[in-house]
Design a protein around this nucleic acid. Structure first.
Length: 287
DNA sequence: CGGAGTGTTAGTCG
DNA sequence: CCGACTAACACTCC
């Protein structure tokens, strides 16, 4: 579900709420989502403090006060929802939880309770997500295996060009390859290709100088804009405060199969499959 | 009812 | 090494 902008939105929301909070207890209802021995996991967290929350690609890294790190990956349908008392606070404007939005619900597989009784719920319908405690050495190895991180100094046009020139896989697939470029997923990869007027199935190493430059710009622009809009809600993604992201209104191609192109007004948005994933593009203004 | 599809990625196989 | 494909799971849609 969440891609870089959604995970970043969750990170920012959580930082303001749980940094420096002490974990009083942890309840694990689905042990298979925890990649440590259950006992070790709980022992490491109980009584610990959350010092900071970082993000690499779509992975959240909770920095604990004793040089250990809690990794949380939400994969397709994971959520992290913070709850204080009966209200889920968000943006300084607390609102009541609706009657049908009880927490925990049947997808709440791990529940953190802090010493002031506030709680963090890890919900995951499809149960692909995971939680893992690691020491610094393993953390560094995991972070190292990711490719260049957009919106950082590492993400230069030169690096980007270099990656594209070395692969003949479809550009959209390459954009989603976390070992190359870290953080883009299925929605934003289609959007980036549209923005640069590049057909998503073009082999990456056949792209022209200008197309590469436009793709590079589009990555930066779209990710920044999406973060500013607090991400994209397609089905049921919500941020850490149970709110929907508003970038969905700005999507140009994803989920718009059969509709007129918003840019050229001539073409139609077509849905195809590239490497087993859905891809959308305008059949008139993308080449 | 059955089958396809869903925002991710680790693992496998050629 | 590279690249393509699949499984992990629960639910919705046609």
């Amino acid at each position: 579900m969440p891609e870089l902008p959604e995970v970043e939105t969750i990170r920012r929301d959580l930082v303001s709420r749980i940094v420096n909070k002490k974990i009083a207890s942890v309840e694990v209802k689905k042990p298979k989502l925890v990649k440590n021995k259950l006992k070790d996991f709980i022992n490491a967290l109980k009584g610990n403090k959350i010092r900071d929350i970082k993000r690499r690609a779509k992975l959240l890294v909770f920095v604990l006060s004793d040089n250990k790190y809690l990794l949380i990956h939400l994969k397709m349908t994971g959520q992290l929802i913070f709850c204080q008392g009966k209200a889920i606070t968000g943006g300084g404007h607390p609102f009541a939880v609706s009657k049908d939005w009880q927490l925990p619900n049947k997808y709440s597989h791990v529940i953190f309770t802090f010493s002031n009784n506030s709680q963090l719920f890890f919900n995951d319908l499809r149960q692909f997500g995971y939680l893992k405690i690691v020491e610094e050495k393993e953390l560094l190895k995991i972070l190292n295996d990711y490719g260049i991180e957009p919106l950082t100094a590492d993400f230069t046009l030169k690096n980007f060009k270099n990656i594209l020139s070395k692969s003949r896989t479809a550009i959209k697939t390459l954009l989603m390859d976390q070992k190359q470029i870290a953080g883009l997923g299925n929605i934003y990869a289609s959007e980036v290709c549209f923005s640069a007027k590049v057909k998503p199935d073009r082999p990456a190493n056949t792209l022209k100088e200008k197309e590469i430059k436009d793709l590079y710009r589009a990555c930066n622009l779209i990710l920044k804009k999406a973060i500013a809009k607090r991400g994209t809600t397609v089905n049921n993604y919500v941020d850490a405060s149970n709110r929907q992201g508003s970038f969905a209104k700005l999507l140009q191609v994803y989920g718009r199969a059969g509709r007129k192109c918003r840019r050229c007004k001539k073409g139609t948005i077509v849905k195809t499959r590239i490497n087993n994933r859905s891809a959308y593009y305008c059949n008139y203004c993308q080449y």
